[in-house]
């Protein structure tokens, strides 16, 4: 027996046990995903920006600034620069945005994969959607 140099059976059992324990541990160490804290905050930002815009008086006609830009393609073309400036002023400096209307969109291209907050405001002529993400 001794001459064959076999490993002690207890050591082999212990090795198998350690592998099992490490498998469970790896589940804890790798398996708990990090909580997504950015999206709720970004959604709050988007919601706030939408609320402010929806409550603002229009520049020319309509009930609010948002219903003004959805009235017609002409109205949107006329107001797009003013809308962009206004959204830029409302949002904090560390945020980028895109405002989509039935007649087009202002702001930046949305990045793929980044956490994004979103808010939608109904107006008589269609929905206005605001997306917000961190720079």
């Amino acid at each position: 027996m001794r001459d064959r140099g076999q490993l002690s059976l207890s050591i082999v059992e212990a090795a198998v046990g350690v592998v099992f324990i490490l498998a469970v541990t790896a589940g804890f160490a790798l398996g708990v995903p990090a909580a997504d804290t950015e999206t709720p905050q970004l959604s709050a930002y988007a919601e706030d920006a939408a609320t402010v815009l929806a409550g603002e008086p229009p520049r020319h006609a309509g009930e609010t600034r948002l219903s003004e830009v959805t009235r017609s393609a002409d109205a949107f073309d006329r107001e797009r620069d003013a809308l962009e400036r206004r959204v830029d002023r409302i949002l904090a400096d560390n945020l980028m945005y895109r405002v989509g209307t039935p007649h087009g969109a202002v702001g930046h291209e949305r990045p793929a994969g980044a956490p994004t907050g979103r808010a939608t405001v109904p107006t008589p002529n269609g929905e206005v959607t605001i997306w917000v993400w961190y720079v």
């Binding site: 002690s8 207890s10 050591i11 059992e13 212990a14 090795a15 046990g17 350690v18 324990i21």
Partner: peptide, 8 residues
Amino acid sequence: VAVALLVV
């Protein structure tokens, strides 16, 4: 056995 217990 002692070593095995220690390791586990």
